[in-house]
């Protein structure tokens, strides 16, 4: 399953959310970004094919050092684990 894209007018940063479809904190993160008009990509890892999960695990672990959901990565360098409004606002300047 590829990343899904949500467009928004706040598109100055590259925002990627690793999420689970069952996770309420992931939903809140996505909703917060939508409400703030932030453009972002997300993937619901629990809905991915098994063969893809191994690849995503590597990617997520390399980038964030863990396997927690939601993990939001801004501009490939700022890693935000969990739904942290304060940190998201700070990283995105919103």
């Amino acid at each position: 399953m590829p990343f899904s894209k949500v467009s928004g007018t706040n598109n100055a940063h590259k925002v990627v959310v690793y999420a689970l479809s069952t996770c309420v904190w992931c939903k809140m993160t996505k909703q917060f970004l939508k409400d703030s008009n932030v453009e972002f990509e997300y993937i619901d890892v629990d809905l991915c094919e098994e063969s893809e999960k191994a690849r995503i695990r590597e990617e997520l672990q390399n980038k964030s050092g863990g396997l927690s959901y939601p993990t939001t990565i801004v501009d490939d360098k700022i890693v935000i684990v969990g739904f942290r409004k304060d940190k998201l606002k700070e990283a995105l300047g919103i």
Partner: peptide, 27 residues
């Protein structure tokens, strides 16, 4: 709202796996 969201996640996992695994973790 948080409670409702968590219960929904547990329900989906129970339907999917046969047991209510943690909604915030990958089973």
């Amino acid at each position: 709202n948080l409670l409702q969201g968590l219960l929904e996640g547990l329900k989906v996992n129970e339907e999917r796996y046969g047991y209510p695994s943690c909604p915030c973790r990958l089973a």
